[in-house]
Design a protein around this nucleic acid. Sequence first.
DNA 1: CATTGACCTCAAGCTGACTTCAAGTGGCAG
DNA 2: CTGCCACTTGAAGTCAGCTTGAGGTCAATG
Lengths: 133, 133
Amino acid sequence: MKLLDIGEVSERSGVAPSALRYYEDLGLITSCGRNGLRRQFGPEVLLQLSLITLGKAAGFALKDIAGMFGQGGRPELPRDQLHARADALEAQIHELTTLRDALRHVADCPAPSHLDCPKFQKLLRAGSLTAEV
Amino acid sequence: MKLLDIGEVSERSGVAPSALRYYEDLGLITSCGRNGLRRQFGPEVLLQLSLITLGKAAGFALKDIAGMFGQGGRPELPRDQLHARADALEAQIHELTTLRDALRHVADCPAPSHLDCPKFQKLLRAGSLTAEV
DNA sequence: CATTGACCTCAAGCTGACTTCAAGTGGCAG
DNA sequence: CTGCCACTTGAAGTCAGCTTGAGGTCAATG
């Protein structure tokens, strides 16, 4: 079983060494020993880091991600949390869509102030979380 | 024209007074005068706040939002840049959609361990920035 | 055997988006 | 006129997720 030291893990995962140490502090990853002072990581850490990266991309906090690894680093995914995240992503997609449309409108609409343009207002109102103006 | 003071704006927009002052500091909103010490806002500020809220929900930094819709909703960017922004949003929407679908799949996949599920593996690999495991 | 250079630790710093706090101000109801 | 209370200011604090820096260690290379 070949062990990796932090530089190698960093290079192969694209995660900075300082971040790796930070993750270890938080308990997201575990080094499996030391060579002198140097942490040694088992190869499975790369897979874990993929999961972490993925989780971050999905908007999970590191703490939450930490909770998703059972003993032995095997992922233990909470279905309801995942669905909740998916819902949140869906909401964000909706916001992004509204924003995209608003941006395109602003780029093309000749009205002097967009805030006065009824089309623009309608777009914003479609953006849900909006106040009652 | 009826003016709102900060408490009213806060209540109607759902944005905390401290946040409103912060936004004013950053130049995202402008008060149109004072009554004594108290800021007075024109009603259009509510629409601006919708825009800001929307932008935030879409994941933009306040600075970015400031550039997209300057004061009065007039963008500070030329047309083509706005369209470029919109294009970028579209790409992001695509990514998030993929991620959302993947998340839902993972939440529902009956495979005993996600690591054994080919779709999950694909997702990890598709996590783009992912290491070669 | 000495040097190198990648690692180590711990503390502090940073960015973003605010919140909280202490001390002060002033419009308005009574 | 008094007092209340919502506002004001500026500074400091908070949280996440790291990065940076100073000073130290040690395995491997020449």
